[in-house]
C-alpha cells in the first residue's frame, strides 16, 4: 500500500514532466525516420526498419532510465521533499522500492507506446509481424530495469551529475563485459586476471539482453535463453536494490 502510494506518485511525477514527453517525441520521430531511411536501401528494408526502431527504443529508454532514475532520489533530497515522506510511518526501503517501481511503470508505458507504434509500422509498411521482435523488446525492458536500478543505487550516495556519469559508464561497460573476459583469458598476470574476472562477474552483462541483431537477421533465439536472461536481469535488479537500501538506510538527510 505505502510502496504503491510512492510508486503512483513517482509515476505522476515523471509523466507530468515535459522532458519525458520530449524524449518520447524524439524516440517516435526516430521510429518514423527509420521508414524514410529504409527507402534509401536496395531490398532488406525490413532490416533497416527493425534495426533502427529497436535501437531507438533502447537508446531513448536508457536516457529515460538514467536521467530520470538519478533524479528520483536526488531530487527528493535536493528539494527536501523526502523530509515529508520519511517523517511519516514508512520504512526507507518502502520508499526506495516505491520510487523504483514508479519508474519501472513509466518505462513499461514508454515501451508499450513505442512497441505499439513499431508494430503498426511493421504491419502496415511491411505487412509482416516477426514475433521474435517482441522478445527483443522484452529484453530491452529488462535491460532498462537493470540500468534504472543502478541509477538509483548511485543516487543513494552520490550527486546527480556524478550518478549520471556512473550509470552511463556502467551501461557502456556492461555492454563490453565479454571483452573483459576475453582480456582476462589472454593476460598472463594472475592479479590482472582476477580483477578482470571480478569485474566481469560483478557488473551486469547487458549484452545478454541484446538480441536485436539476431532478430533483425531472423536468427532464432531459444525460449530458454530469453527466460534465463529475464531471470538474470531480475535477480541482478534485486541485488542492486538490496544494496541501495543498505546504503540508503544509513544515510543522513541533511
Amino acid at each position: 500500500m505505502k510502496v504503491y502510494a510512492i510508486a503512483i506518485n513517482t509515476f505522476k511525477e515523471v509523466i507530468r514532466d515535459k522532458i519525458f514527453y520530449s524524449l518520447v517525441f524524439f524516440a517516435l520521430l526516430l521510429l518514423g525516420a527509420s521508414m524514410l531511411l529504409s527507402t534509401l536501401t536496395l531490398g532488406e528494408r525490413s532490416k533497416i526498419i527493425e534495426d533502427l526502431s529497436l535501437s531507438s527504443i533502447e537508446i531513448f529508454g536508457v536516457i529515460i532510465s538514467i536521467f530520470v532514475g538519478i533524479g528520483l532520489v536526488g531530487k527528493e533530497l535536493e528539494k527536501k521533499t523526502i523530509y515529508i515522506i520519511i517523517s511519516k510511518p514508512i520504512k526507507r526501503w518502502q520508499f526506495l522500492l516505491g520510487k523504483y517501481l514508479g519508474l519501472a511503470l513509466v518505462l513499461l508505458s514508454y515501451i508499450s507506446v513505442m512497441t505499439a507504434c513499431y508494430m503498426l509500422e511493421l504491419k502496415f509498411y511491411l505487412n509482416e509481424l516477426p514475433w521474435q521482435t517482441l522478445m527483443a523488446v522484452l529484453l530491452i525492458y529488462v535491460e532498462l530495469l537493470t540500468v534504472t536500478a543502478s541509477a538509483i543505487l548511485f543516487s543513494t550516495f552520490s550527486t546527480p551529475t556524478l550518478s549520471a556519469s556512473y550509470a552511463l559508464a556502467l551501461y557502456v561497460i556492461g555492454h563490453m563485459t565479454e571483452d573483459l573476459r576475453g582480456l582476462a583469458a589472454k593476460t598472463g598476470q594472475a592479479g590482472v586476471k582476477a580483477v578482470l574476472n571480478f569485474v566481469y562477474y560483478f557488473l551486469p552483462n547487458l549484452e545478454d539482453f541484446d538480441i536485436k541483431a539476431k532478430t533483425v537477421h531472423a536468427i532464432p533465439v531459444s525460449a530458454e535463453y530469453i527466460l534465463m536472461s529475464v531471470s538474470y536481469g531480475l535477480m541482478y535488479v534485486m541485488a542492486i536494490l538490496a544494496l541501495s537500501v543498505l546504503i540508503f538506510q544509513r544515510r543522513n538527510f541533511k
Binding site: E13, K80, T81, Y83, I84, K88, P89
Partner: peptide, 19 residues
C-alpha cells in the same frame, strides 16, 4: 518507526511535490 503514526511534522521551508 511505528511511533510516527501519531506524529505530524512540518519541515522548515517545506517543498512539496509541485506537480
Amino acid at each position: 518507526s511505528s511511533v510516527k503514526r501519531n506524529i505530524g511534522f512540518l519541515p522548515e521551508q517545506p517543498y512539496f511535490y509541485d506537480y
